[in-house]
Design a protein around this nucleic acid. Structure first.
Lengths: 196, 196
DNA sequence: GTACAAACGAGGCATTAAGCCTCGTAAGTC
DNA sequence: GACTTACGAGGCTTAATGCCTCGTTTGTAC
C-alpha cells in the first residue's frame, strides 16, 4: 500500500485541509475503518483524489492527523493531589475515551492497522499520543514516587490492562479494579522496590 | 467484506485443508497480513478460490484456524510451585511468543483486524486463545490466591502490560519489571484486598 | 494589473483483489 | 454403476488503488 516517499507540507488552503480531516473523521464513525477509502474521503471532502495523494500516503496518516489533537486533549486530566486519585482519574478517562470517543475509535483503528503495515506502526509509534498523555500524568506522580522506572515501562504497566481490555473485549475495567491496580503501582513506585 | 452467512464444515480432504492452513501461515510470514489475499492463499495451496470461499469467509478466519492450535500449545507453560515463578514464566513465554513466533504474529494481526471488522472481533473474542491460556495458569495460582476476582479481569491485569508493550512498541518488558508486576498481583490476590 | 507557477477539481487509465458464477472432472456413497 | 457433492480452473462484475493528464483557480512577483 504505502510506498516510501513521504509527503511534506500541507494543502495550500487550510480550509481544504480541515474539510479533508473532518471527512476522514466522519467517515470512520459512519462506515468504519475498513470501508473507509481515499476515494470516499476525497468525495466527502469535495476535493480531488490527487490532493489527498499529494499530501498524505495512506488513510491512516490522514486519520492520525485528524484525531491527534482531540486525542491529546481528551486524555489531559486535571491534576489531583493524591497520586492514586490522579492516576485513577486518568485511567477512567482513558477507558471512556477508547470506548466511546471518535478519536478513541480512531486510535484503536490505527493501532490495529499498525499490526498490518510497518509504515503505520512507525507512524503511530513516533506520534505515540497515548504515551505522551500518560507521561504527563506520570510526571505529576513522580514527586511522590521516587522509585518509578523508565517512563515507557510505567506507561505500559499503567495503561496496559485498560487498553488490553478494550482491544480484546470492548469493555472497560470496573472502577474498583482500576483503583486496586493504581494503588499497587503507586505503592511499588513509592517504596524502594516491590520485588525480589 | 465479511457477510453474515457462516460456513459450516470443512474441505472434503483433510490434506487439502492442511495445505490451505499452511499456505495462510506461510503467506503471513512471507508477505504480511495486508498483502495476504484469498487469491494468494488459494494459489499457494494449489486449490480453487471457490474452495476457500466455500468453507471460510475471510482470511482472518483461515488464519485463526491455522494458528490457534500452535498458539494454545506455545502458551502452555509448565506448572511451578511458586505462584510468582509460575506467572513470571508464563509472561516471559507470552512476550517471546508475541514477538517472535509466527502464531504470535498471527495473533497480533488478528487483534489488529478485529479493530476494523466486527465479524473478526467476534471471532477472536469467541476463540479468545490468549484468555484461555492465561486462565490455565491463573487456575493453578488460585489455590494460593483466594482473593482473585473474575478471571477475565485477572487476565487483563496480568497480560495487559505485556500485550500493550508488544502492540505499540514491538518490545518485550524486562524481566525485573515482569517479576515486580507479578509480585504485586499475587500479593493483592493473596490478602483480603489491595485497595480502599 | 499582468505574468507566472504551483496547486487544484475532475476524471480517465491500468492493475488488482473480492466474491460470485459456471464449466467439466474427480471423489466418495448406496 | 448411477448419483451426489466437492473440486480446479478460470471468467465475470464491481470497486479501490495510485498514477496520469486535462483545464482552471489561486496566491505571489513584477
Amino acid at each position: 500500500m504505502g510506498s516510501d516517499n513521504a509527503r511534506i507540507g500541507r494543502p495550500r488552503s487550510e480550509q481544504a485541509r480541515q474539510s479533508i480531516l473532518h471527512a476522514a473523521d466522519d467517515l470512520l464513525v459512519d462506515v468504519g475503518y475498513a470501508a473507509m477509502t481515499m476515494k470516499g474521503i476525497a468525495e466527502r471532502a469535495g476535493v480531488g483524489r490527487q490532493t489527498l495523494y499529494r499530501w498524505w500516503t495512506t488513510k491512516a496518516e490522514i486519520l492520525l492527523e485528524a484525531t491527534i489533537d482531540d486525542l491529546l486533549e481528551e486524555l489531559t486530566t486535571p491534576a489531583e493531589p493524591d497520586p492514586v486519585e490522579d492516576l485513577s482519574t486518568y485511567l477512567r478517562a482513558l477507558g471512556r475515551f477508547l470506548l466511546d470517543d471518535p478519536a478513541g475509535l480512531a486510535y484503536r483503528a490505527l493501532v490495529g492497522e499498525a499490526q498490518h503495515d510497518p509504515a503505520v506502526r512507525d507512524l503511530v509509534r513516533t506520534a505515540d499520543p497515548l504515551g505522551t498523555s500518560a507521561r504527563a500524568v506520570l510526571d505529576r506522580v513522580r514527586r511522590t514516587a521516587p522509585a518509578m522506572p523508565d517512563p515507557a515501562l510505567c506507561t505500559a504497566h499503567l495503561v496496559g490492562p485498560v487498553v488490553y481490555q478494550v482491544l480484546t473485549a470492548q469493555t472497560a475495567l470496573p472502577d474498583t479494579e482500576l483503583r486496586a491496580h493504581v494503588t499497587d503501582l503507586v505503592a511499588r513506585w513509592s517504596t524502594a522496590t516491590g520485588s525480589a
